[in-house]
Design a protein around this nucleic acid. Sequence first.
DNA 1: TCTTACTCCTTACGGCATAAGCTATTCTTT
DNA 2: AAAGAATAGCTTATGCCGTAAGGAGTAAGA
Lengths: 245, 245
Amino acid sequence: MVVYAGQGDPERTLALLWRTTGEGVKRRGPKPALTVDAILEAAIAVADESGLDGLSMRAVGERLGKTAMALYTYVPTKRELIDLMYDHAHADLIPDLPGGWRQAVETWSLALHERYLRHPWLLQVSHARPVLGPHEQTVLEKLLEVLPDVAVRATVNSLFSLVRGSARTIAEGQGAAADTGTSDQEWWAARSRLMNDLVPDFAERFPRSANMPPAEWDKAAREAFTGGLNLLLDGLENQTGRRDH
Amino acid sequence: MVVYAGQGDPERTLALLWRTTGEGVKRRGPKPALTVDAILEAAIAVADESGLDGLSMRAVGERLGKTAMALYTYVPTKRELIDLMYDHAHADLIPDLPGGWRQAVETWSLALHERYLRHPWLLQVSHARPVLGPHEQTVLEKLLEVLPDVAVRATVNSLFSLVRGSARTIAEGQGAAADTGTSDQEWWAARSRLMNDLVPDFAERFPRSANMPPAEWDKAAREAFTGGLNLLLDGLENQTGRRDH
DNA sequence: TCTTACTCCTTACGGCATAAGCTATTCTTT
DNA sequence: AAAGAATAGCTTATGCCGTAAGGAGTAAGA
């Protein structure tokens, strides 16, 4: 399932995202035993380990030695928690980008790609509408800084699609392997055998698909990513070149 | 949340996908009151209306005048049901593709894009490993038939990423609008106002993001899609042209 | 006719997010 | 110092979910 982001109470969420909640102000009542950041880190740890499906308020609370309900003092709902996790996981993402725009865009894409692979659950958070958190905003801003001034929206959209799509393919392959305990080879072998029995005319009906063996998925997917990126940047260079190259 | 596909009992799932279950054979016991296809259509109707989150076995059963448990006679688990829905929704998708490869790829992409928008929940089904159903396989095969023989894997991967990514953006915008009852304009206006209050220095910190207003999202996202597609195809033509053009 | 295989129901279980309400804690005001 | 107010974080409860278990009825084969 997909968790839709950015649909909670906007004011509360934005305030949490940008941490505009009065920090130094003295407040009554018992000292808070937790902080939003501690919760975020626990939640991210849970999600890294068990995916977004394993992310329950109970699980996060347990990791902090609290009950699920204790979290609701800090975070209005699970939705907002995920929004916060999402933005938090985009912190300190983009390194200094090298000179030429093409190299810079490549570096940016690889950094984002890598981050997605480190936190695969990020790919399961669908931003129905942008979360508008500071860290994600920074990621976008850095890209805009280096992008040539041609077809900006199309390029941004395509880059995000490409990076997310490729990362998804890789992450899901890995996740499936981990979940089921069967490697890609084993899984594929088992399926081939079954398909041979069940659909003996497969190769006739789908000759081209049959001719495209899976190889090592992980590697193939990575190559497909850089290959696709190159295609896209070629296309962009093509349009740009006539102006400022 | 994301539903992971292709992880149930492979034999049962594949048999259901390819309908190799003995159809004409006489079976004992009461006549089945349902068929897998009827369940699929009901389930797809539910998902179209309420998304994958609203898809519960109870809801599907109710639509058919049955209980949730009645479905388990036909479908082993909800997971496999979703696999079957996924493949079913890819039926009769690709029209006859026009002559030139570039036009053919464009037509293919648009058809897939459109299908995703008709059944947005498709985008929430992540194929950890391919479902390997007949209809999805046909979609892939048709693309392979027209694709030039260059960087095939990268191109296929990129095209799927681009189509899915763009469709996701559009679908989620629409979904959010429907869910929250606020239009894009209203939503954006509200956020802008809040951001102005909470983060008054936004425009200084993120000048380029601030300069990229949201416009009409739906339209912008569609243009970004065709624009990205053109970039990609330019890149591909660049590599192909030297050979067979 | 009796057995067997099958459909489809009711019931039940454990897990989920979270609403409601309670208690204990700590600051502010008197 | 005492009283009041606001807050943290607990327990409990509600209504969802997927689905396991088991039972009742039905139709084909022996």
